[in-house]
Design a protein around this nucleic acid. Structure first.
Lengths: 290, 290
DNA sequence: AGAATTGTGAAAAATTTATCACAAACGAAC
DNA sequence: GTTCGTTTGTGATAAATTTTTCACAATTCT
């Protein structure tokens, strides 16, 4: 295929693997706000990408242009063509795929779920829930069901770093009654229950509530029966073009909660995280992040 | 309304009637290929509009800019904002919360991640990956790391229903070498590896590849080293306003893959699902869905 | 330790912008 | 049709900015 048919974006992406660190940094910066960032002065591009001016100059030539102005001229030409061409209109998410492609249909649905869910959420309730979860005086129990235990686990993994005194309970396990033995009325239960709602989860929630624990519930738009006894509950839309439901929206809420709780506890978290980093370094489990 | 909220295009159109001949000519030329023409050199704009250089300079100042570069900077800023928000109108997602609330900031970031990722994905590669995963002749191994194992588990839970012959391996476990003993060259490995990339995962991938297995990789925008040996890899953007990364985009891809694979295997899946339903009913694990 | 990559600082070259004075062109009014 | 005021273009120039390119030092990776 001739270069003429390829956008600069395509060309950069194709070369991405052959690039060195600084070049890749630059490439990402160009793609980040494509094509706007490439249309400013060279020095601004270098600054945004945190690379030096010569690096940009060298890269532009590697891409086959005589100089930066020529590079910009082609970017403008692309932009001209794209705006002119109604087909290039962004009504699909994955450019190369037809709008009926599963990638586009699914993404539409998920975005729609997010919009609906966020539109109905009560920010004060959310803040209150975050405060509960962040409170290190309280024991934190995270409960998930057959599918939702992955969300529970995800939340647990992060909370474990952010604060002490966290437990992950799987309602499908039959060991959970033990955990409830020493529930105090200051405890907080974060419970995930989406359809099909699980009897075990409901029973667990009831027992926790009887012992005075606070209950924060993540459920779907039809609401788990747990919501009647929950102190705070969030319902995420989960409908997608699939035989299954989507956890996307709920994951978004969970991640936001993690971030908020992190901020609330930053003082303690920082020390804990550094400690953890050190332990990971020692085990050499991870590669150095470059 | 303050000028800040108006695009340059709006401002020009509003003034259109008060302009003189040469100025109007220029204005139309700017709007003709908006905003591309305004992003080139001043002299080129003058030439395209068939007006003189001073006319352009004067006009730009009439529009309230200190000079042409400032004019261009604002055009670029508009472009940046526009590309970022194809769905925009929503300046906040959670209506009740200020735009600076974590809920809104986080959602913005996730949507942005999705848009970026989908924009760069190769639908053919995606389809190919789905076909591999759907192929029941091949054994399917799903591998996750310390955090990503929740995604692996999630994919596993669904694949388990959709098709036989699925295994979930946790790279952090030290039991995984056993699983590789009888790897055949028809096997498919779906591997999740996000920063910080895990050495265990890389080793596992290498061994799998040496034995001829196909490798499908889900990673982040900086790409796990596994991507060099992967047959197909997908990089999702994961940046969010948090000390942690977001799995949102990758979850979207995984769920889409589940749905696609489900469709490919619908004939068999149907029977398997009904069977499973029956088993769940017997265990009374779930409440009847109303 | 050596090779490759990247940054620094500077200077020169090239381009672009901003302005000027003045003349030409134009349009409206008389 | 002439006149006057406005608008526009010309050509030139100064100023500002940007691009391009060095050599060399610092850094990173192998």
């Amino acid at each position: 295929m001739s270069d003429a048919a390829l956008t600069i974006s395509d060309r950069i992406q194709r070369k991405l693997d052959d690039l060195t660190r600084a070049e890749r940094q630059l490439a990402h910066s160009i793609l980040e706000n494509y094509p706007a960032s490439g249309l400013g002065p060279l020095s601004a591009l270098a600054r945004d990408a945190n690379v030096s001016v010569p690096t940009v100059a060298r890269m532009v030539q590697k891409l086959g242009f005589k100089g930066y102005p020529e590079f910009q001229a082609e970017l403008r030409e692309e932009l001209r063509a794209k705006v002119k061409n109604p087909i290039a209109k962004h009504d699909t998410w994955a450019d190369g795929a037809p709008s009926g492609h599963m990638l586009n249909r699914f993404t539409d649905a998920v975005i729609d779920n997010i919009r609906h869910t966020l539109g109905q959420i009560d920010p004060d309730a959310f803040d209150a829930a975050c405060a509960l979860v962040a409170d290190q005086e309280r024991r934190l129990c995270i409960v998930g069901g057959r599918i939702t235990h992955v969300l529970a686990e995800y939340l647990f993994l992060h909370m474990q770093v952010i604060r002490p005194n966290v437990t992950h309970i799987q309602s499908t396990s039959n060991a959970w009654p033990h955990y409830l033995l020493d529930t105090k009325d200051s405890d907080v239960f974060v419970i995930f229950d989406m359809r099909r709602y699980e009897n075990n989860t409901l029973k667990l929630a009831q027992m926790a509530q009887e012992q005075g624990a606070k209950i924060v519930l993540f459920t779907d738009q039809w609401r788990s029966p747990v919501h009647q006894i929950a102190d705070i509950s969030f319902s995420g839309r989960i409908v997608v073009p699939s035989a299954w439901d989507s956890l996307g929206t709920t994951l978004l809420l969970v991640e936001t909660m993690i971030s908020s709780v992190q901020n609330l506890n930053w003082h303690d978290t920082k020390a804990r995280m550094e400690e953890l980093e050190g332990m990971f370094d020692q085990t050499k489990l991870f590669r150095k992040f470059t």
